[in-house]
Computed example of a mutant assay.
Amino acid sequence: MKYLVETTFRDKETLKRYLKGNTFESTDKDRIETLQSGGYLGKTIEEKAKGGRGRSSGKGKSDDPGGDVNESSKAESEDTPAKEE
C-alpha cells in the first residue's frame, strides 16, 4: 500500500530519505503503524484504476497511415533540411 509522507524522515531499514509530500510504499503493517504513530505517515493513498474511458493524449485520428508508408521513407522525409535562400 502507498502512504503520504507527513514529516520528512530517513527509513532506518532502507536508509532512504522520504520528504514531506512523497509517497512511502510498504506491505509491513507493523512498520506502517509505527511510522503513523510517530507522525511520519498519513493515510493510505488511493490508486486510480487504470483503463476505462480516459482521455487520450492525442486529438482526433491517428497519424499512422495504416502501414502504407514504410518507416525508413517516413524518417527520411522528416530529416530533410530546409532550403536556405
Rank of each mutant, 00 (worst) to 15 (best):
K74Y: 07
E25H: 07
R10F: 05
G38I: 01
M1S: 14
K12Y: 09
T80I: 05
D79W: 00
Y40S: 01
K59D: 11
Q36I: 01
G67H: 08
F9M: 06
P81F: 01
G21M: 13
L19Y: 11
G51D: 06
Q36W: 04
K61L: 09
G39R: 08
T8Q: 08
D28T: 05
K16R: 12
D68N: 12
E13F: 07
A75L: 02
A49L: 02
E84R: 10
T7I: 08
G39I: 05
K48S: 03
E78H: 09
R55N: 14
K29V: 09
G42V: 06
E78I: 10
S26W: 05
G66P: 07
G21R: 08
F24H: 04
S57F: 03
L15T: 09
K83W: 09
L41C: 08
K61V: 13
E25S: 12
R31T: 06
G66W: 06
D30F: 00
D28F: 06
L4N: 07
T8K: 08
L35N: 00
Y40Q: 06
N70M: 07
T14A: 10
G67E: 11
D63W: 03
T27I: 07
P65R: 05
V69F: 10
E85S: 13
E6N: 14
G54C: 03
G66C: 09
Y3D: 00
E76H: 05
T34H: 14
T7E: 14
T8S: 11
Y18I: 01
N22C: 07
I32K: 04
Y40M: 02
E25A: 12
G66H: 03
D11E: 15
S57D: 05
A49Y: 06
D11L: 00
T80Y: 02
A82P: 11
S62A: 14
T44Q: 07
E85N: 09
E76N: 10
R10Q: 14
K74M: 06
L35W: 01
D30E: 12
L4P: 03
